[in-house]
């Protein structure tokens, strides 16, 4: 092989590797992403049973029931509700009336079986997906916002 051919071979090899890497990344991206829905969006566009997605909103007041390790609560966006069952330890800052995101899938029985529940890390945290949803639904209370604003200067 001449020097030029050698160089071409190397460049072709590197190019091939890059194309392969890109293919892997984009194939994975199209199959491994999780969508986020609010309870209302879920009602409007039902998701297949067993399909992973994330649901977010506020934990409805007086809806949290603990039975041993089984936690049942309702996620609401003011219009629609979704029942969530989570068989693990909830995060420290999980509270009724506060923002939450649950990851999991719908079951035959019609509730959302969560594999992971994300609550906030601190007092001022409201997941931004939840904020956006609440704003869309007109459920965003300015007082809450102010409280948050003050908190985040914190």
């Amino acid at each position: 092989m001449t020097r030029k051919q050698k160089r071409l071979a190397v460049i072709a090899g590197l190019g091939l590797a890059i194309v392969l890497a890109a293919t892997i990344i984009f194939t994975a991206l199209s199959s491994k992403i999780t969508f986020f829905y609010s309870p209302s969006e879920l009602k409007e566009n039902p998701v297949a049973i067993g399909q992973d997605f994330r649901i977010g909103g506020l934990v409805k007041e007086d809806s949290w029931v603990k039975d041993g390790k089984i936690n049942t609560f309702v996620v609401t966006d003011g219009e629609s509700d979704t029942k969530v069952v989570y068989q693990q330890i909830l995060p420290d800052l999980f509270r009724e009336g506060q923002g939450v995101i649950a990851e999991g899938a719908l079951t035959q029985e019609g509730y959302f079986a969560a594999t992971n529940v994300l609550a906030k890390h601190d007092e001022n945290y409201l997941p931004k997906e939840v904020v956006a949803t609440l704003k869309e639904r007109g459920e965003w209370e300015p007082e809450t916002k102010e409280e948050n604003g003050e908190g985040s200067a914190n």
Binding site: I24, A28, K32, I33, F35, E129, A132
Partner: peptide
């Protein structure tokens, strides 16, 4: 405006292959 998350399944797959 679509809200999605790319989580562990994506990274585990692509990262380990590479």
């Amino acid at each position: 405006g679509a809200r999605i998350s790319v989580g562990a399944p994506f990274f585990d797959l692509t990262f380990s292959i590479l």
